[in-house]
Design a protein around this nucleic acid. Structure first.
Length: 720
DNA sequence: CACCGGTTTATTTTT
DNA sequence: TAAACCGGTG
């Protein structure tokens, strides 16, 4: 019997050892959640003799899955690599690769990411004559994906959006299916279909997975919830961990109601609350508690720690954004001089564009920094191009890849030709490659020449792949397709090339991890799941200051945290003022930021800054006012002005003038638009509302503006 | 089809 | 400000 008692408090111990039936753990920030999860799995395996394949642990990120495996390895001391500890999506891939043929898909389906989806939607819009100016491809994509996970929503869609979605959605699905592609939602949906429609498959997994654990449960969406339901067997040994206060992905479909639903569906649920925080000082926790307390829809929780009060939170107000950055840089200097490592310091911001100035100044001052959350390695254009080439080499019938690279680098084969090729292929029910081999009559001579040239090139590369070592092949490939030449005229060419050559390392790793000899198969496996992979950590100087968005910071911790650009309009974003739900999500984001900090928290902003090229003056974020002034140490402009300004603001809020203004503002914000209403738009003039749904509305303006889809509450619209 | 230049628009994003 | 996008021209 392995005992965990020494390292766990009583609540944690209960969470680790309650092994029968449904358990829900409400895990406050920094309460040792990951430790509970891993120790629970270890307890099941070492103390209760549960086979390791009978445990299924689901996370949201590869990083979390990897961390769990690593920490578990330390406890179990046997290989955890093949255990079912994975993200929702890779778990689904693992299941689908085995059974997807039941659903009439080919076993070697490819996974498309969001960018691919957008491209597909764009091309379909063109094909079906949907004007991208009236309906933004981006919003069509969002609607398609929403409908996809909840088809009932189609009934609630207003015209003309509904009409468009009714065309584009099935066309999109068909396009994916025809090309043997699946998107991220398909991975979940198809797995649900397998389990729900094929009882023998479901039975197999029910027999296997006796214990199911779900991390970050507050981030599950409706279909993921359904998937869990389909996986849990009659014993209902399901263990979920979550914290609704840290739910910051509602905009991506995360549904907090799943927590309540879980309680109903698995009644009775053993609920365990972890409130003891092992991370932060009490000053920081008091601030965090005060901020989150303002949210109405939550189970009350109060974090506490035994770390003492620590230092006050510094609130620095700078004159300009440049001053703000200077302040942060200089403060970091001082901190480092006093013995703190760069790597235990983070700068957190709401929007990515904030990072630019920080990067500039840090570079100038030679402060080592690392920006997280750049476009992921696998989403970079050059990588996607290379992947498409490799896929096409393994499988010439891969139309999707064909279309991507046939004119990259430029070969004089334009959008129109590609469209014709794809249409012809669709008519013939064949791949583009086959169509070209059989019938070239519909193409002009010049085009035909270029295409033939490309086809010959690909065929010779296929042969070449079999004859030389992979590393050599990549070098030759880049040369022969003309990519090298193209990169020479690109000022970021050397970085791009370096990225592309990384594929060699990946191939070597794949060779080692997949137990197959055949080169083609290794490559095939490697390419299959590439869309699911996340960026490998760069080998930059590990002792660097971390720069990242608040979203990216979730799950991490730092001794010193700077939360910057805390200004109304930026954080919370102005488009979130109107609805209670979105302001609550922004507040949770503030909570997440504050609770990342172990020792010393800095809140900063600037009284004026350039935003999109023009000078703006923003107020302090209202979230700072939630924090008691006794916890704050005011610095910068605050020092002189803030004390009086704060009092002034509070007094002012009591006055009649303020209350009336507030009323006036809320009134214009309400802007209750209905079908048929006449409105006046600052730019487009008078128009008539055609339809309204959620936060958007469609308005018909007179010539030359025409029909526009606009944000309903945008200040430029007023009712007439 | 490719290129140039004017116009438009601006979250967050685990997979 | 900066990047993405569109439309006209060669």
């Amino acid at each position: 019997m392995v005992s965990w008692r020494n390292n766990l408090n009583s609540m944690q111990e209960k969470a680790v050892t309650t092994y029968e039936g449904p358990v829900m753990v409400v895990a406050g920030a920094g309460s040792g959640k990951t430790s509970v999860l891993t120790k629970r799995i270890a307890h099941l395996i070492l103390n209760l003799g549960v086979p390791k394949d009978a445990v299924l642990a689901i996370t949201f990120t590869n990083k979390a899955a990897l961390e769990m495996k690593t920490r578990l390895y330390e406890l179990l001391e046997f290989n955890t690599h093949t255990m079912w500890i994975s993200t929702f999506h890779s778990m689904c891939v693992r299941i689908l690769r085995e059974h997807i043929e039941h659903l009439d898909y080919h076993k070697h389906f490819q996974i498309v990411d969001d960018d691919d989806t957008l491209q597909i939607i764009k091309s379909l819009m063109k094909r079906h004559g949907v004007d991208a100016k009236i309906m933004a491809p981006h919003s069509i994509k969002n609607y398609v994906l929403k409908i996809k996970t909840d088809e009932a929503r189609m009934q609630n869609l207003e015209q003309p959006m509904r009409e468009i979605i009714e065309i584009i959605y099935p066309a999109y699905q068909k396009q994916l299916k025809d090309n043997n592609l699946v998107d991220f939602d398909d991975l979940i949906l198809l797995t649900i279909r397998l389990l729900e429609d094929f009882p023998e498959i479901q039975k197999r997994y029910h027999r296997q997975f006796e214990y199911i654990l779900v991390d970050e449960f507050q981030d599950t969406n409706t279909v993921q919830y359904r998937l869990i339901r389909a996986l849990v067997n009659e014993k209902k040994n399901v263990f979920i961990v979550g914290d609704e206060d840290q739910s910051i992905y509602a905009f991506r479909g995360a549904n907090i109601e799943n927590i309540q639903r879980f309680k109903r569906d698995y009644h009775p649920v053993n609920t365990i609350v972890l409130e003891q925080n092992y991370r932060s000082t009490n000053t920081i926790l008091k601030a965090a508690n005060a901020v989150i307390k303002e949210n109405k829809n939550r189970i009350k929780k109060n974090l506490f720690s035994t770390k003492g009060d620590g230092d006050k939170i510094v609130f620095f107000k700078a004159y300009s954004e440049r001053d703000e950055v200077e302040y942060v840089a200089e403060t970091i200097r001082l901190l480092v001089r006093s013995g703190i490592d760069y790597q235990s310091i983070a700068v957190l911001y709401r929007t990515n564009n904030t990072s630019r100035l920080f990067e500039e100044v840090f570079m100038q001052k030679q402060l080592p920094y690392l920006i997280y959350g750049n476009t992921s390695f696998f989403k970079r254009k050059e990588i996607k191009d290379l992947v498409a080439y490799l896929r096409l080499i393994i499988n010439p019938h891969d139309d999707y890849s064909f279309m991507r690279v046939v004119n990259e680098p430029r070969r004089g084969i334009g959008a129109k030709t590609i469209e014709t090729l794809s249409r012809n292929a669709e008519h013939a029910g064949l791949s583009i490659y086959e169509t070209l081999v059989q019938d070239k009559s519909s193409l002009s001579k010049g085009v035909l020449n270029k295409i033939n040239h490309f086809i010959t090139l690909m065929q010779s590369l296929q042969k070449h792949f079999d004859t030389v070592h992979f590393n050599q092949f990549i070098d030759d490939l880049l040369e022969r397709i003309g990519y090298l030449k193209m990169l020479q005229n690109d000022d970021k060419g050397d970085v791009r090339l370096e990225n592309m050559l990384e594929i060699k390392t990946m191939f070597k790793e794949a060779e080692n991890s997949y137990d197959v000899d055949d080169k083609t198969t290794v490559l095939l496996y490697m390419l299959e799941d590439i869309a699911l992979k996340s960026q490998e950590e760069k080998e930059k100087d590990p002792n660097s200051v971390s720069l990242m968005t608040l979203h990216a910071a979730k799950g991490l911790e730092f001794d010193v945290v700077f939360m910057v650009a805390l200004e109304k309009g930026i954080f919370p974003q102005h488009r979130h003022y109107d609805s209670l739900e979105s302001i609550e999500e922004e507040r949770r984001l503030m909570y997440v930021g504050v609770t990342r900090c172990k020792q010393q928290l800095y809140l900063t902003n600037a009284s004026q800054r350039y935003l999109y090229g023009s000078l703006t003056q923003n107020l302090d974020t209202p979230f700072i006012q939630d924090i008691s002034p006794t916890l704050l140490q005011l610095e910068g402009l605050n020092k002189e002005r803030m004390k009086t300004t704060l009092r002034y603001t509070q007094d002012y809020q009591q006055t009649q003038v303020y209350k009336e203004r507030l009323k006036a503002i809320t009134k214009t914000n309400e802007n209750h638009l209905d079908k048929g209403n006449k409105v006046n738009h600052k730019v487009f003039g008078i128009g008539v509302v055609v339809s309204v749904n959620n936060d958007q509305c469609v308005i018909a303006f007179s010539h030359p503006h025409g029909i526009k889809t606009l944000m309903k509450d945008h200040p430029s619209i007023s009712k007439v």
